[in-house]
């Protein structure tokens, strides 16, 4: 039995081709994973650098996590801004969903970075955590979203929650340039591109870029997929809530 549609909504390209897009992302990521873990032979066998050795493959996972988190942060702030302009509830759903997925990628980025650093930078020590500027920046970003969710749970009325939390989200986003550009300049870093360290392009073998760039696109795709699923689920939830009870 199918329920009648009360509000027929315009379906976008993404809505009508969702399954195909999802399949494309899954296949893409499968190819990336195969490339990332191809050992032996000459095919995509990465150059061996002392200390780094095969941990260099973490480049395919750790760095795209950050790109995905930053992309989702921008998406979240953008929708919060639009939510303040229009007061549209869907904008709030989008901002919140993007923030949630951004936190997941932020935590994964911290985890992959922490493990990587332990076995390379801090080889032979017991250090797992160091206040490297990029690490600090990411931690602060995750903390900001933690505060954002806590603020949301302290607001009962849904329209007020959308507006007030959007203000906090935009306000926090205004300080991001300081986290990204000013703060790292004032601290010493072991990350590539920092003072005294070679830039990313100088130390990366062309072979690795063959996997790295597709991995960036793939992880952003996965991030978008998770975000889109959450938005769809929330929209449906809201439609169910708004549907008036009619006896069958």
């Amino acid at each position: 039995m199918t329920l009648p549609r009360e509000h027929p909504v315009a379906r976008s390209f993404i809505d009508t081709h969702y399954r195909q897009i999802r399949l494309l992302i899954v296949l893409w990521m499968t190819a990336v994973l195969l490339g990332a873990f191809s050992f032996g032979g000459h095919w995509l066998n990465i150059p061996r650098i002392s200390i780094l050795e095969h941990t260099a493959r973490n480049l395919y996972f750790h760095v795209p996590m950050w790109f995905t988190m930053m992309a989702l942060t921008v998406v979240s702030a953008w929708h919060s801004m639009r939510c303040l302009r229009s007061g549209d509830a869907v904008r709030d759903i989008r901002a919140r969903s993007a923030a949630q997925v951004a936190v997941v990628f932020g935590l994964l980025g911290l985890l992959t970075g922490s493990v990587w650093a332990h076995y390379t930078w801090y080889e032979g020590t017991s250090i797992w955590w160091n206040f490297d500027p990029k690490q600090t920046m990411a931690t602060v970003q995750v903390l900001i979203y933690g505060a954002y969710f806590a603020l949301r749970s302290a607001l009962d009325d849904s329209a007020k929650r959308a507006r007030i939390s959007a203000v906090y989200n935009v306000f926090a986003f205004a300080t991001v340039p300081f986290l990204l550009y000013v703060l790292p300049r004032q601290m010493e870093s072991l990350h590539p591109g920092a003072e005294g360290n070679p830039a990313f392009s100088e130390i990366t073998h062309p072979l690795m870029r063959l996997v790295f760039y597709p991995a960036v696109i793939g992880f952003i795709g996965v991030g978008w997929l998770l975000y889109h699923q959450r938005v769809r689920a929330r929209k449906l939830e809201q439609q169910l809530e708004n549907r008036q009870y009619t006896p069958l």
Binding site: V140, L143, I144, G146, D156, F171, A172, T175
Partner: peptide, 23 residues
């Protein structure tokens, strides 16, 4: 001003404030 609009303020202000003030 934000926490004045919430139902339960409690320890909300330090939580909202500290990450923002890090720089």
């Amino acid at each position: 001003a934000i926490i004045a609009r919430t139902a339960r303020s409690g320890p909300l202000l330090p939580m909202l404030l500290f990450p923002l003030l890090m720089p």
